[in-house]
């Protein structure tokens, strides 16, 4: 009999169990309302993101998923006339704590954007940018961080011989991976991804998705995506938003195979609207 004959434990939960289960409410969003001026963009959102898991936000355009994501590192502060109610905590601490500088929050919460946005600098300088603005000058530390991040972003082998070349000479997929390397260079705890693959071809998308799969060993990842397939492929949990409300939040399998809300079912089966 072949070795595969040995009866094994149930493999429906395919994800390899990490050494230690993390906090279930690593990021905790509590009764969160958010307004752009008079417009209510998010309404009583309640949602917990477990540590070292991938959570996907899906929903039609304008449903508030990006808004919520951009609240997690307070990128929305750049917009005039915003207001929020409720609270968001990361590892138990409110991100709106007046004692917490928004800059130090952003150093703990890395972000990757929809359009890859490398700086017009060398590949090296792009990766170590976050360290540079933190005031790190030690060349050895920077070199090490650069290599580690690029390796984690699965880009090292492709660029190690041209670190001083302009980052703008890279291909689209490489640029996006560079942006991921840049986002993880200062070892944040959380990685936010705002439609990271929407401008990439399928191969590059596949590489990024594999990368997300590997990065969740170390980072808690929240990803906003328009592609339900992508959400299904990379996430452990999926949240479906519609018109600023969280309609359903469950394991990805549950959401895509047997959602409990009719709206979710309609959306994921393409029968929406």
């Amino acid at each position: 009999m072949p070795a595969t004959m040995n009866p094994t434990t149930s493999r429906i939960q395919v994800r390899p169990a990490t050494e230690k289960e993390g906090r279930q409410d690593y990021i905790s969003i509590r009764d969160f309302n958010f307004y752009y001026g008079a417009k209510k963009a998010l309404e009583s959102i309640k949602l917990d993101v477990p540590e070292r898991r991938v959570v996907a936000f899906i929903g039609p355009s304008g449903c508030g998923k990006s808004t919520l994501l951009r609240n997690l590192n307070r990128m929305n502060d750049l917009v005039d006339g915003i207001r929020h109610e409720g609270d968001i905590t990361i590892n138990g601490r409110s991100i709106y704590d007046p004692g917490l500088e928004v800059i130090s929050l952003r150093r703990r919460v890395g972000m990757v954007f929809q359009k890859s946005n490398p700086f017009p600098k060398s590949i090296y300088e792009n990766v170590v940018y976050a360290l540079r603005v933190m005031g790190v000058r030690d060349r050895a530390i920077l070199d090490e961080a650069c290599e580690t991040s690029l390796r984690k972003a699965a880009l090292w082998d492709e660029v190690k011989d041209r670190l001083q070349d302009s980052a703008l000479g890279l291909s689209g997929g490489q640029m996006q991976r560079l942006c991921i390397a840049r986002a993880i260079a200062n070892r944040p705890e959380i990685l936010l991804m705002d439609e990271p693959c929407s401008a990439l071809d399928p191969i590059a998308t596949g590489k990024i998705e594999e990368l997300i799969h590997e990065l969740k060993e170390q980072f808690t990842i929240v990803i906003v995506t328009h592609s339900m397939q992508q959400a299904a492929r990379v996430s452990d949990r999926t949240a479906f938003f519609y018109l600023g409300k969280l309609i359903e939040y469950d394991t990805t399998e549950k959401i895509f195979m047997n959602p409990s809300q009719a709206q979710t079912e309609a959306y994921i089966s393409g029968r929406f609207g």
């Binding site: 072949p2 595969t4 004959m5 493999r11 395919v14 998705e209 492929r233």
Partner: peptide
Amino acid sequence: MQRHFHDELRQLRDDLILMGER
């Protein structure tokens, strides 16, 4: 490119083979 979910396909095959041997 090997995707992480391809492992699951192998798992499925293994399960079928196991069934067959049984």
